Simulated assay, not measured.
Amino acid sequence: MEYIKVTNENIEKEHICCAISNNNDIQVSSKKAWLSERFEDGLVFLKSTERGKCFIEYIPAENAWNPISADGYMYIDCLWVAGSFKGNGYSSDLLNACMEDSKNKGKKGLCILATAKKKPFLADPKFLKYKGFRVCDEADNGIQLWYLPFVENATLPQFKECAKHPHTDEMGYVLYYTSQCPFNAKYVPAIEGIAKEKAIQFKAIHLQSKEEAQNAPTPITTYALFLDGNYITNEQMNDKRFLKLLEK
């Protein structure tokens, strides 16, 4: 498998693995705009040269769009290998490339979000454990921070206090999200429309800066849905999934 690093120089012609449509698609344009603004913060997007979901995205933890304290670490936004790419060792290829790059940049180690049991849009804990990662912190909603140190006695990454007890003070549905996930550009407006049509209290909070994301009341900022103050899910909802949720 050959891999290519996406940069501001080639981003217009390269596909983005999690959204493979053309640049006129709102999901693609949203994700590419978000990436373009993060490259100067040290973000790396390494992907397969073949079209499909096979990529890793990582950034120095102090610039991560998550409420974590992990100075000196590299934070993995997403490691996603799916479809026909699974089972070929590509996840290991991508992680190894991230490790080598991070060590060359003098990082203490890596950190990433997961849960005790695999959940959509989060890393596989079995894979992480196999690669030597360990849990270093956990929020009340079961979201865990995993780390892989490169040096002995490295300070453990941890969640900021604002994220350890995910909760909002507002009633109804409250969604925190960023443009890191391209699906939000399409489906957040869709579920906002459904909520309005059905006269359901719904508020979408679009985190549009690193500072906002680093002080959010949730470990996961790409997508965190609450109901009457309580955390529900990090799984992106299309219109059908949201309607099913409302039926419950």
Rank of each mutant, 00 (worst) to 15 (best):
E235K: 14
L246T: 11
Y73Q: 09
K31F: 06
L43P: 04
L145E: 09
E14D: 09
D228P: 08
D137P: 00
Y58S: 00
P166L: 01
F39V: 01
K13Y: 05
I56S: 04
T178C: 06
E57Q: 12
A61Q: 05
P189G: 09
K118D: 02
K47W: 14
N104V: 05
D93S: 05
D101E: 02
G42N: 03
N234Q: 15
H206E: 08
E62D: 02
K244S: 14
G72V: 02
I11F: 03
C78P: 10
L128T: 07
D93H: 13
I220R: 01
K119S: 08
Q27W: 07
S92P: 05
A33C: 11
A163N: 06
Y3L: 09
Y73K: 08
K198T: 12
G52P: 14
I16L: 11
E40T: 13
F133C: 06
D228T: 14
N104P: 09
W80C: 14
V188W: 02
G142Q: 09
E138H: 01
Q180V: 13
T178H: 05
I4F: 02
E50F: 04
Y173G: 00
I143P: 05
K105P: 03
A97L: 13
S69A: 11
I26Q: 12
G42L: 10
I56F: 04
C162K: 06
W146K: 12
K32M: 03
K13Q: 15
I59M: 12
K196V: 03
I76K: 12
S179V: 04
L35N: 08
Q27G: 15
C181G: 14
F39K: 10
T115V: 10
A64Q: 01
K107D: 04
G132Y: 02
A33V: 14
A195V: 07
D77M: 08
L245T: 13
I112V: 15
T218C: 13
P189T: 07
G193F: 08
E138N: 01
E9V: 14
F159Q: 03
